[in-house]
Each structure stands twice: as C-alpha cells, then as structure tokens.
C-alpha cells in the first residue's frame, strides 16, 4: 500500500455518462490484484474531506485504468480533469478476489460498471469462463468487448431489451445454470448493486458452490481506521453459536465469500 502522485494519461467519455480514466502509476499499478481498489484524492471540490474509492479496471505496465459514472459532486469534479493533470492515489487497498482455480468454471456476474472490477479476474484467470452482465439499457453494458477479446463468452441482459436478452441478469444466469451447466463446478465472481449480490449469494448457497462478491459501501479513510464502511459477517462466538460481527469493507473486503455475508 502506497501513496502515489499519478499523471492522467487519458480521460475518455464513453456512452451513457461513463468515463474511462487512465493514470500513469509506476508504483501502485504493478501491485494491484483483481478486485482491489484505489482511493483517489480529487483536486476539487476544495471542501471535499474524503477520498473517493474506485475499483481498478485495468492495471498493467505502469498504467492503471478506472471506469466510473458521474453520480455525485466528487465524480462531477473528477469529470473535468484532463490528460496531464496530477491526481494523488492511495492503494492498492483491500482484499481482492482469490485466484481462479483451474478445476472450476469461472462465472463472472456484473451489474453495470461492476463489470470493470471483474476484468482483471478474467485477464489473469488460467481458464476461460462466462461473463453475465446486466444493466438498465445498452448504454450500461460497457466493456463487453474487452472480455470478448480475452476469449470469454459474454452474455448480456438489459431491462429495456436494448441489448441482449430483455430482463435482469439473473434471468439469463438462471436459464444458463438450468440448461448448460452440465454438472460442471462453477465458481462465482460478482460485482454490482446489492440486490444482485444478494441474488448471487442465494444461488451460490443453494447450489453448494463457491462464490465471491465485491461490495460497495460509503467509505471514509479506506485504511480500516474510521469504521464507516462496515458489513455484517458470520462469526461463531466462544460457545460455538452462530452470531455476527462487523467486517470493514475497505480492509477485510471489498471482496467477501458469499457464505460469510449476513444480509439484513
């Protein structure tokens, strides 16, 4: 974990208000593992007292890319940054996804730009798998071609039917699991809205499979000190009874095993 002043190499507007930010990062980029995140210090607004956490999309050869959507004042300020501008980053932070095993079929499930957090999983996997991605419309399906270039099978669902099958991503996933799993051992890697993550954990639990989800929470320091981004996880007390404890999404997460999450 380091603090690094990086230079913006490019900052591209994609469809649907999404942006791709590429940074020159000699020190942090080579350390990033799939599912880890970086904490960005935005030069403005001047009164912002928190950094902003972003999953790493791509990390290679001294470059680090982030895919984001302008949703609040922080990302709006971020959108005005140009190539050549300096940006201070802290990272890599958190526990990422475990390595993909050779003896399983990796299934990546993403909602919207959650797909970005899964790219390194696919890129570094020893076997090819399937990506299920969903979004409100075609504009929310962002990096499908990046996965296809890795020879991964990409299945798309949109709520308005403007790309892929109409409906939620869980619908195409369920159809696939029913018809095409053929007794293979799947392992799930998911990133997206809470509803999707919960739905994946339900299926993983039912099937008795392994699954990993990347969680998104309001984050403060990113270092495990402020205890803002906590999530309930299973724990056994001294008497062996099942209870829960807080885990810090920034430190013990953002990736958790499906079986460990306590859903409220």
């Amino acid at each position: 974990m380091l603090i690094e002043n990086t230079i913006i190499l490019s900052h591209r507007l994609l469809k649907g208000g999404y942006r791709l930010l590429t940074l020159k990062s000699k020190r942090i980029a080579p350390m990033v593992r799939p599912g880890q995140f970086v904490h960005l210090r935005l030069p403005s607004p001047a009164d912002a007292v928190l950094r902003r956490p972003f999953s790493v999309f791509r990390a290679q050869a001294g470059r680090l890319a982030i895919l984001y959507k302008t949703v609040g004042k922080g990302t709006q300020a971020m959108a005005t940054l140009c190539a050549g501008d300096e940006i201070n980053i802290l990272g890599p932070l958190g526990q990422g996804f475990p390595n993909v095993r050779k003896d399983t079929l990796p299934l990546l499930v993403a909602g919207g730009y959650g797909m970005a957090a899964l790219y390194l999983v696919a890129q570094r996997a020893p076997v090819k798998g399937i990506v299920f991605v969903g979004g409100a419309g075609a504009d929310d399906i962002l990096c499908a071609d990046d996965f296809r270039r890795l020879d991964w099978d990409v299945r798309v669902a949109t709520e308005d039917g403007s790309a892929g099958k109409k409906g939620l991503v869980t619908r195409i996933l369920d159809a696939w699991l029913n018809k095409e799993l053929h007794g293979r051992q799947p392992e799930f890697f998911a990133c997206g809205p809470n509803g999707l993550l919960k739905a994946i954990c339900k299926r993983v639990g039912r099937g008795g499979w392994d699954g990993w989800i990347s969680m998104d929470r309001h984050m403060g320091c990113g270092l495990g000190a402020c205890l803002a981004c906590v999530q309930k996880v299973c724990k056994r007390d001294a008497a062996g009874r099942e209870t829960w404890a807080w885990a810090r999404v920034c430190t013990e997460g953002p990736v958790f095993a499906c079986r460990d999450i306590v859903w409220d």
Binding site: C226, A228, C229
Partner: peptide, 8 residues
C-alpha cells in the same frame, strides 16, 4: 450503517 457522510 450508513455511519458517515461528507457535507460541505
């Protein structure tokens, strides 16, 4: 949670 929010 939520336990934290940034304000001006």
């Amino acid at each position: 949670t939520p336990r934290l929010v940034e304000v001006p």
